[in-house]
């Protein structure tokens, strides 16, 4: 394996709650991009990003749809940040039975953000494109070792041994053990 092949592209959308003006353009754009045919309809209820708004408490939290869960959390936190109280659900992107978010309105099937995968790829995901206030910003970065196959336990163990004793010693030991086993 070459070093380059070990790297993977990590796509990240940064959310800055302080910059959000609550316009929900991100919801509209996401729903329109994922409409079939593309852009043929709008419907924020189908968006894979939703802005949780509680305007009297100055809460504006854009969250993207993550995984599906069949059961809601049993206990929930509230977070106090800069004197403002947020419910844990306000930050959670899970499509969950406790709420309406991130389910297809007709079928109830869970929705999940796909980072606007497209061929050719978009310069930026749609939700980011329509947010000039930079409440949403997009970053692609390379991360080490991302695309390696998951290594097996044995390999991980051997790796640790070679680090400790050196490759030669490990191989000698293995060879000796093999010989003794044969006898």
């Amino acid at each position: 394996m070459t070093d380059a092949a070990k790297k993977k592209i990590v796509k990240e959308i940064h959310v800055d709650l302080d910059k959000c003006i609550g316009c929900r353009a991100c919801e509209l754009a996401c729903s329109s991009f994922h409409a079939k045919p593309r852009y043929s309809s709008t419907n924020p209820a189908r968006a894979r990003i939703r802005v949780v708004v509680d305007d009297l408490n100055d809460v504006y939290v854009p969250i993207r749809a993550g995984d599906y869960t069949p059961a809601e959390c049993t206990g929930r936190h509230t977070h106090t940040i800069n004197g403002k109280e947020y419910r844990e659900c306000s930050f959670c992107g899970v499509s969950c039975p406790a709420r309406d978010l991130f389910k297809e309105p007709d079928s109830g099937l869970p929705l999940k953000c796909d980072m606007c995968e497209d061929d050719p790829p978009l310069a930026e995901p749609m939700c980011v494109q329509v947010c000039p206030h930079d409440a949403l910003t997009y970053e692609e970065r390379e991360e080490e070792g991302g695309e390696e196959e998951p290594r097996e336990e044995l390999e991980i163990g051997l790796d640790a041994l070679t680090k400790k004793y050196g490759m030669k010693k490990v191989m000698d030991t293995v060879a000796r053990m093999a010989v003794s086993k044969k006898q």
Partner: peptide
């Protein structure tokens, strides 16, 4: 904060 209306990038309303 400043807030906007639906699908508009301006922010004409002060909370």
């Amino acid at each position: 904060r400043w807030t906007g209306c639906y699908n508009c990038p301006k922010d004409c309303h002060q909370a």
